[in-house]
Simulated scan of single mutants.
Amino acid sequence: MKFTMITGAVAIAAMTATSAFAQDEDRTGWPESFTVGTASQGGTYFAYGSGWANLVAEELGISGGGEVTGGPMQNMALVHTGDAQFGMTTMGPAAESLAGTNPIAPGLQMTNACAMFPMYQTPFSITALSSSGISSIADIPDGAKIGFGPAGSTSDTYFPRMMEELGVNFDRRNGGWSDLGGQLQDGLLDVIAFAAGVPVPAVSQLEVQTDINIIEFTEEEQAKILEAFPVSEFAIAGDTYSTLQGDARSVSMWNFAVANCDLPASFVKAAVNVVMSDNDRMVNIHKAARSTLPENWTKNTVLKWHPGAAEWFTENAGADIPADMIHGN
């Protein structure tokens, strides 16, 4: 399971007296450095994950950064094995990983990846060039070349199944979001099916460079997807992209940060505090962090909580986490 370091290590020599976690706190067992498994460049995971990795590194005075990976499925594997201390996943891939059906390691139940904090909802959306004439799912031609993101990502895992459910016949393509955006512009793809927090950097870049259509689900299509998949109703706000004239009907899946369950509770609690204690700072990293709020701890119904994270949410968000949902209990 190889991944590539993109974000430079960040560290500080000392911390201010006002920091929530002082340097003289007991740091027994804390790692000298950490990595956060994200996804491909051009996607929300990479921007969001690299941002909070740098923030935690700076605030805690530890070298750390984000890693380019294959996304949620690979992140679950990396965190489970300890090859990455932290990672990000969606609830669908998390459930499959716990059940032993993660394609990265079939049969391996990845129970050593624990819930850390709620991130945001991942909407499923479709983008095509305006010049293609594709403005609805029904317009997608038979055998269309559709980019579904990196292999094994949430998008690649669920969006092809959704398209099949809606009767779309397609030629499946994979790649990083930035790369797929370039292929769409060059006419090598007909459509890109995104599952990523909004605004998706690759879509924002596309609409600056060319005219695009952001395609919403019809009410009937949305209802069909809600019935068949572990997703929720969602609307992409009209001000998310300049291309949109109003809210766009979609479906979404919740994302959570995960931590290796063997990490010291004090370290994970400190990292959670950095992320969850100042939402404005997180929103400056990525607008999707508007949902990175303490009260959204309830959105995890799949993963056991890391003890350090559970302690933070109990003390700061009034969380009533069942004992059997905390790792080690």
Rank of each mutant, 00 (worst) to 15 (best):
G49N: 14
D247E: 13
L78Y: 14
A193K: 07
S97A: 12
E311H: 04
G37M: 07
S50D: 13
D190Y: 13
G61H: 11
L60Y: 09
N329S: 14
F313P: 03
Q185E: 14
G197F: 12
P123Q: 04
F21K: 05
R290C: 01
A105F: 13
G176A: 11
N296E: 03
W305Y: 03
H306A: 04
T35Y: 12
G143V: 09
V258P: 06
R173P: 00
H80V: 02
V258G: 06
P106G: 08
T7A: 15
M119D: 10
A11M: 14
D239H: 15
A115E: 08
T240A: 04
W177T: 02
M5H: 12
H80T: 01
P123R: 04
K269I: 03
N260D: 08
E221R: 03
A257P: 07
A47D: 12
A151R: 09
G152Q: 03
A115S: 07
M162D: 01
V56F: 05
S19V: 00
E227D: 12
V231G: 05
A113S: 14
S277F: 00
Y241E: 01
E96Y: 03
S135P: 04
I137M: 13
T18D: 09
S291F: 06
H327D: 11
P103L: 00
A128P: 07
V10M: 02
I140F: 14
D186I: 04
M325F: 05
G71D: 09
N284G: 08
A202P: 11
S131P: 02
F170K: 04
H286D: 09
L206K: 07
A223S: 14
C114I: 02
M1I: 11
N255F: 10
K287D: 10
A248I: 09
M76F: 08
A84H: 07
C114P: 10
G51C: 05
D280W: 04
G197D: 11
T298Q: 15
S125E: 13
V200S: 09
I285N: 10
Q183N: 02
S19F: 00
T101D: 06
Y158Q: 10
S277P: 01
G246E: 15
F229K: 05
P150I: 11
S33G: 05
T218S: 15
F159K: 07
I321E: 02
T7L: 12
T4W: 06
T16I: 06
D278K: 08
S135C: 08
V203I: 15
G61W: 12
N284C: 01
A202F: 11
G71A: 08
S132E: 13
G107R: 11
D139I: 14
G238I: 03
I285E: 08
E219T: 04
M276A: 04
S132F: 11
E295N: 12
A47M: 12
V231H: 06
D24A: 14
E216I: 03
L180R: 10
A113H: 08
D83T: 01
E233Y: 09
A105D: 13
G65S: 01
F34N: 03
G8L: 02
D83P: 00
E67S: 15
F217S: 04
W52R: 10
S135V: 09
G133I: 14
A265V: 08
P264I: 03
L98P: 04
G82Y: 02
A105V: 13
A196H: 07
G87E: 01
A319L: 05
A128H: 06
Y158P: 00
